[in-house]
Design a protein around this nucleic acid. Structure first.
Lengths: 217, 217
DNA sequence: TTAAGCTTTCAACAGTTGTTGAATAATTGG
DNA sequence: CCAATTATTCAACAACTGTTGAAAGCTTAA
């Protein structure tokens, strides 16, 4: 009996759907490919999840609660350890990013696929923004509030534009396209989230400080 | 005779394919939707471009040369106006981004779609990196060389990680997902490239400086 | 054991997909 | 003008799509 046999067919469908959707996007995957990858009949996906889009939503929401809780508790920890001025920009960004790294280092390949799926959704026009909002807005607003507290002189919209830049850098990292590997001729590896965040945290923090202090008009 | 009639059917196919591929991705668009949008028979796309993937490549390559030339000349201009130390980080990033803004302000809606298509390709795992390399590597290496000259103390891989962050911020901007609009409750608009770059340039420049000076190990 | 309720497979559906070969129309060069 | 090339449409193909109803298998509890 292989390991796959011990996992319920329902979860096998979720796992392979997660992987395929992350690699090829919603329209690039057929239910038959998912069923075949899960070693299961085509109809079983419909039985468990309904329409194809419902399956996609189930995949996207499966790990959301755990991930959000992990990032929120990292933020709370930083806030508890800070003085009344609240955590610094670096500390807030650290709490925003590091949990994603731990998720990868758990050794669960599924997490890696899930993060790539987030990148796919976040970069998708129109419907992507809706789906992202539903799952992540509450958490993101917490972080933005913490950033605003750390940067009291910031113009209202500058906080959002800076967050947008951070979100973009993060999204491209999560997508794991391998482009930076090739460009740097192997000096950087897309799969090395820790190395990415080691640079992204000071990079983004310096950006926030520069933009949100220099421009007070 | 409407305006559409004055444009060759071949170009109408390219235009509508550009728009649809940018909005829904490669697999999210059918040749019949393209043909219908161009008011043309399905077979005509195959006649002019061959397979569906060939059409996609034709779309992706159509504006590449012009765009690359525009960005390269912006870099050359900055280099000509600089002293022998070369242009500053801000000036290099400015040359990297501003041509994309001009492309939008030309009023040609097609450019906007094309930039969103670049975002789609750049964020796509595996095949995206190959396609990006083929079209943009030569130009990107020019910019990275200029950045390295502006940051002589930088560790080799830090330049690439910083560029990765900039590329991610840019990619999410080009994707025009509308997410930042919603998150900021209208304070920021995805369609306003100038506002995005006004923040992105000092943001990224500060990030480059911080990362590529502080860490010399 | 039996009956009930899940789970899984089987078989088939109507519609859509990319692609092609032949037929027709439009354009061009002599 | 005609002939030849190019552009465009028409019709059809085999393969594949998501979805469903019915049948069969399995688990569980009385």
């Amino acid at each position: 009996m292989t390991k796959a046999d011990t996992i319920s067919k329902r979860n096998r469908i979720l796992n392979i759907a997660e992987e395929l959707f992350a690699q090829r996007g919603y329209d690039g995957v057929t239910l038959r490919q998912i069923a075949s990858g899960a070693n299961v009949d085509v109809a079983l996906a419909s039985y468990h999840f309904g329409k194809k889009l419902d399956l996609f939503n189930a995949v996207f929401e499966r790990r959301a609660e755990l991930l959000n809780a992990s990032r929120l508790s990292a933020l709370r920890l930083a806030q508890d350890n800070a003085n009344k001025k609240g955590p610094s920009v670096e500390q807030v960004i650290e709490a925003f990013l590091r949990p994603l790294e731990i998720a990868q280092e758990s050794g669960d390949e599924g997490w890696k696929n899930y993060l790539a799926l987030i990148a796919y959704v976040n970069n998708s026009p129109h419907w992507g923004a809706l789906m992202m909002s539903k799952i992540f807005d509450e958490l993101v607003n917490e972080f933005i509030a913490a950033l605003r507290k750390a940067l009291p002189n910031a113009k209202h919209e500058d906080i959002y534009w800076c967050y947008h830049n951070l979100s973009g850098a993060l999204t491209l990292t999560l997508a794991q396209t391998g482009r930076i590997d090739k460009l740097s001729k192997g000096a950087c590896r897309s799969s090395d989230f820790r190395a990415a965040y080691d640079v992204m945290i000071p990079f983004a923090a310096a950006g926030f400080r520069k933009v949100c202090k220099a421009r007070k008009d």
